[in-house]
């Protein structure tokens, strides 16, 4: 097949509105010159007509809507649709409650407030004694600092 014929068939696949004026002119001129592509164009138009003439205009039976509704009811599709929304709502409410609780718990003051006459606990006393018994750290000399 010639390059022009290939190009002709390629452009034929487009809608006329999609083609530029140059492309339309090429289609017209090539069809005038090439008998094979002229036949191709005619075949394509016939093909469209043949397919149009074979269209089935079937709208379905009168009971179609009832049948679909019955199937939906039997398979409980609507119930399932109804269920997931309240379930999601409940899950979100629970999650929100848990998060609020966690926030409240973690925002409690960690260090207790001390009053002047509070006595140290036994554990605190041991720590204080250990601190007082420890030797003071040696003071840094000038040479140590480099």
């Amino acid at each position: 097949m010639r390059r022009d014929c290939e190009w002709f068939r390629h452009l034929s696949a487009f809608d006329q509105q999609e083609l530029s004026r140059q492309e339309l002119t090429f289609l017209r001129n090539h069809a005038a010159d090439c008998e094979e592509c002229r036949r191709y164009s005619t075949d394509m138009r016939l093909l469209a007509d043949v397919l149009q003439s074979a269209v089935i205009e079937h709208e379905g039976s009168q009971s179609f809507v009832d049948e679909v509704e019955e199937e939906v009811v039997q398979s409980r599709v609507l119930d399932k649709l109804n269920v997931w929304r309240p379930a999601l709502l409940a899950a979100l409410t629970t999650a929100a409650a848990v998060l609020t609780m966690l926030h409240v718990l973690t925002s409690q003051p960690v260090t207790p407030t001390l009053k002047p006459d509070d006595q140290p606990t036994a554990e605190a006393k041991v720590r204080i004694d250990l601190f007082e018994e420890a030797e003071p750290a040696p003071a840094l000399e000038e040479s140590d600092r480099g």
């Binding site: 509704e69 609507l78 119930d79 109804n82």
Partner: peptide
């Protein structure tokens, strides 16, 4: 979605 069968029929 809310379970209204009339709406379902209308869509079909």
């Amino acid at each position: 979605r809310q379970g209204d069968q009339n709406a379902l029929r209308e869509l079909v």
